[in-house]
């Protein structure tokens, strides 16, 4: 389709910096090329993203960081297939993305658990649909319990969302997404609504799971420390409107990472200051 054609075109135009990967990696697992999106508004179309290109390899943990309103969620939603790009598009594993699907599971910012279902049933709803005809009843049950155990929620799986804490809800949201066995896990500020301690706890959980499963993850965040701690690659976005990828930072700190040890690590602090200087010097938010 047209996206494929456009992608080739953009590969020529793109400056090396935004094209991202070194040429040694032949084909990206997830390839966003020349993505632009216009939102219809009363004052005519509003260009939120302009020419966003990004390549992500399999098993990579990528963070998207930028000022509020620049379009981070929009990028994620395009990859999820929840929004349709006006120009360009995303190609996952050689196939164009044009609708949502479980291979691109989403962890929503405010968990989005269905309050009338227990934690178990929330995960079950996904598993039953995704593995229909592929797993029998017992296998499904074991798979649901396995995923809840992964996020340390097996003790409360028969509680309703209203009966558990915010951090626990977010854990169940992650379990639900993981249970779909996604090729890419998409997380939109997954810990944004949590207090600092709970957030640190969940970040550790995510790193643990990541070490186990080696998922490909895209995470939107506001938090510089979170981005450096978790990511292999940090995508920094310019301010909107018509936001685009400003800079991509490779974070090649060894794993497993320990937040205490890293606090005094020179390279960690270097990465941190690079992100900070991008956000607060080059992309300083214009006074509104």
């Amino acid at each position: 389709m047209s996206v494929i054609a456009m992608r080739k075109e953009h590969l020529h135009e793109l400056p090396a910096e935004t094209a991202g990967e070194a040429p040694s990696r032949p084909r990206a697992f997830l390839d966003l090329s020349g993505v632009s999106i216009d939102f219809p508004t009363r004052k005519g179309p509003f260009r939120a993203l302009n020419n966003v290109s990004l390549k992500i390899a399999k098993g990579e943990f990528v963070s998207i960081i930028g000022h509020s309103g620049c379009g981070k969620s929009t990028v994620l939603n395009i990859v999820a297939g929840l929004y349709q790009a006006t120009e360009g598009g995303a190609i996952l594993n050689g196939r164009e993305v044009n609708q949502p699907g479980p291979e691109r599971a989403v962890v929503f910012q405010n968990h989005a658990l269905l309050p009338w279902l227990t934690c178990y049933q929330n995960v079950e709803l996904a598993v039953k649909t995704v593995f229909k005809g592929r797993k029998n009843k017992r296998e499904m049950r074991e798979w649901i319990e396995h995923n809840l155990k992964l996020v340390h929620m097996d003790h409360a799986m028969h509680k309703y969302p209203a009966e558990i804490s915010g951090g626990m809800k977010q854990r169940v949201g992650i379990a639900r997404a993981l249970a779909m066995e996604p090729s890419v896990l998409l997380m939109d500020e997954p810990f944004g609504a949590l207090d600092a301690l709970t957030r640190a706890h969940l970040q550790d959980s995510v790193m643990e799971i990541q070490a186990d499963l080696n998922n490909t993850v895209i995470m939107v965040t506001h938090d510089v420390d979170e981005a450096v701690l978790l990511s292999d690659k940090i995508v920094m976005m310019t301010n909107g409107p018509a936001a685009t990828v400003g800079e991509v930072l490779e974070v090649d700190l060894a794993r497993p990472r320990d937040r205490l040890a890293l606090a005094s690590d020179e390279r960690y602090n270097h990465f941190r200051s690079q992100v900070l200087s991008f956000l607060y010097e080059r992309q300083r938010r214009p006074v509104e």
Partner: peptide
């Protein structure tokens, strides 16, 4: 978000 959950899982119309 709840609608989007359904879309991501690809629930059929009835569910």
């Amino acid at each position: 978000d709840w609608i989007n959950v359904g879309r991501v899982i690809r629930l059929n119309w009835r569910t």
